[in-house]
């Protein structure tokens, strides 16, 4: 802040110097990342995310056609007013299926991220606060899980357990919490050295209360930002596993499994691949933008 203000005062002098102009430009860029603008960005993307979430919740009432109703006379039909995104090989309305897919993908991705965040933060705080054997056990488990490439483990677990929604969530959640646990532990370890924690303890607060009232609010922001960044990854993992046939099973409308199903007749009906693909892409992009804005706000 200080640097920017200083430069504004000396505007006249700097303008004379050609070489300094480039620095001005840089500073103007820095101003772009200042808090009020970032705050506006966050509100804007939060609004978009909320919109997506509402659409996903209201999907059953928004669909123009029955997403599961097959129609032999409209197989692989091109987009038309009646079927905005065309139909697939069974004559099902793709627009309706994409909407219904939004419900599964967005709702369950948010749920999974939420659950892993809470579980990971809890374990991380416990490990960092108590140290000793808790810390050892939890962190060795984290190390073990992080030894696997994440997607490889998810594929193996979902594959061995045999697909399906619950197993997919399990497979993705198995490694998901480790991120928060590691972060929370690190932060708690450094917070523990602070004087206000010692003061809280000396005033007779229990460990549980110190963790809940004094430590948690201090690390919650960081955890939420990381969770926001994770939503996009989770959406992709979700769709990826379904695409491989390890997630949501076929008649159910889900973006990944729709793409997988339609890739066989892409030549005749490219819209059957492109519509769910675009929906996935846009959703991931919006969540990523929100995550970026949030992490800019936190100054990382």
């Amino acid at each position: 802040m200080c640097r920017i203000k200083g430069n504004c005062k000396d505007k006249g002098r700097i303008k004379e110097n050609c070489k300094e102009k480039s620095r001005m430009r840089e500073n103007r860029g820095d101003e772009k990342t200042n808090k009020s603008l970032v705050r506006k960005r966050i509100i804007f993307f939060l609004f978009l995310v909320l919109l997506l979430f509402i659409i996903s919740l209201l999907a059953p009432y928004l669909v123009p056609n029955d997403p599961y109703g097959t129609n032999a006379s409209y197989m692989k039909a091109a987009p038309s007013p009646e079927f905005p995104f065309g139909t697939d090989k069974l004559g099902r309305c793709i627009f309706s299926r994409v909407l219904m897919g939004a419900r599964l993908s967005i709702f369950f991705s948010l749920l999974l991220v939420m659950v892993t965040m809470v579980a990971g933060t809890f374990l991380g705080v416990v490990a960092g606060y108590y140290g000793g054997i808790f810390d050892n056990i939890i962190m060795r488990l984290v190390d073990m899980l992080l030894a696997f490439p994440q997607l490889v483990l998810a594929i193996a677990v979902a594959g061995v357990l045999g697909g399906g929604m619950t197993n997919m969530l399990l497979a993705l959640g198995l490694t998901g919490w480790t991120l928060y646990a590691r972060l929370a532990r690190g932060q708690v370890m450094s917070l523990k050295q602070e004087e206000f924690i010692a003061a809280a303890r000396l005033s007779g607060n229990s460990s549980l209360r110190i963790m809940a009232v004094h430590i948690l609010p201090n690390i919650a922001g960081e955890m939420i930002v990381n969770a926001a960044i994770q939503v996009g990854t989770t959406l992709v993992g979700f769709a990826g596993l379904s695409f491989l046939g390890l997630g949501v099973q076929v008649p159910e409308a889900e973006w990944g499994s729709m793409i997988n199903e339609a890739k066989g007749y892409m030549q005749q009906a490219p819209w059957a691949v492109l519509a769910p693909g675009a929906a996935l892409f846009i959703t991931v992009a919006v969540f990523n933008l929100l995550g970026d804005a949030l992490s800019d706000y936190m100054g990382r």
Partner: peptide
């Protein structure tokens, strides 16, 4: 590129 999953890119 970050928002585009690799399987989607592959198919497109």
């Amino acid at each position: 590129g970050n928002a585009l999953p690799n399987f989607l890119l592959a198919i497109v």
